[in-house]
Design a protein around this nucleic acid. Structure first.
Length: 272
DNA sequence: TTCCAGGCGTATC
DNA sequence: GATACGCATGGA
């Protein structure tokens, strides 16, 4: 782990990381780019649960500053959140046996899978269905503003689709309240679900109204770091049809979800 | 105006 | 099991 403490900041050296590719690639919805294109430095601000972070990448690629971050917070929170224990360089070499994955990995080599909170991922991806990323961010922004941070499940106890109308989340509000009820009643427990075999975990999550295969897979991948979970949305359907009509290559085995993220980003921003 | 968005529930066959 | 359609909202 290559980092140094510099005053109130942490300097992190990590070549397999880029802010926009990881924080703004449709896996998390609470990061905001605060620099503009004229700045020499790219700066993002966001949260893991309710811990705030300002992180910047300077002119030297692969060198990051975690502003006002103590070493303890870095090691306890951000090291884990940014998945710094995983060697993405090694993963990309593995994936690159496959031609399209080689292109996707080289197109956006700074993608990482964040280790997000399971409830935040579940609720965020319930909101994401049949929706676009700017509007997902808007709804989650109204949610966190209203509760003064991302609400715990218990903070949403007793809410109804009507009381959540301020979110303007449309038909998804009733899905959120159904998830809250099942979690608070103890019918479902996210920490237990995280440990189940993939198919069993999917089945449990899909007991929630409004949680189908896609939302369940995203919850597993982004909220429980189940790298074998493979979410298929409209974009991944195009990937599978165009490039993998005969299925995924063996080199992604066990890390289908991570491969998925490189491919998702690549096809959405596909260079002619 | 119409189409679409990190889908899913329901009806119908 | 497969396929068609509606769904809230808002940007393009």
């Amino acid at each position: 782990m290559d980092f140094t403490v510099s005053g109130n900041d942490i300097i992190l050296r990590q070549p397999d990381f880029a802010l926009s590719e990881t924080l703004d690639c449709g896996q998390a919805f609470r990061w905001k780019k605060v620099s503009d294109d004229s700045d020499r430095c790219e700066v993002y601000e966001g949260y893991f649960l309710n811990s705030f972070l300002r992180i910047s990448e300077g002119e030297e690629k692969g060198v990051f500053i975690l502003h006002n971050t103590q070493e303890k917070d870095f090691l306890d929170k951000w090291y884990n959140y940014l998945d710094l224990s995983t060697d993405y360089g090694e993963l990309k070499r593995r994936f690159s046996e496959d031609e399209m994955l080689a292109r996707a990995c080289s197109y956006a080599g700074g993608i990482r899978i964040l280790r997000q909170d399971s409830w935040e991922a579940l609720s965020s991806f319930i909101i994401s269905q049949n929706n676009n990323i700017p509007r997902i961010k808007g709804i989650i922004g109204r949610l966190t503003e209203h509760y003064g941070g991302y609400p715990e499940v218990s903070q949403l106890a007793g809410e109804t689709a009507e009381s959540l109308a301020f979110l303007r989340s449309g038909f998804r509000a009733k899905y959120l309240t159904d998830a809250v009820e099942r979690l608070l009643s103890g019918e479902l427990d996210l920490a237990s679900i995280a440990r189940l075999p993939l198919q069993d975990a999917l089945k449990e999550l899909m007991k929630i109204r409004g949680v189908g295969p896609k939302v369940a897979m995203c919850t597993l991948l982004f909220g429980m770091h189940r790298t074998d979970a493979f979410p298929v949305d409209v974009w991944m359907k195009r990937v599978l049809e165009r490039w993998y009509p005969n299925g995924l290559p063996d080199c992604v085995k066990g890390c289908e979800g991570i491969a998925q993220q490189y491919l998702f980003h690549y096809i959405r921003n596909e260079p002619v």
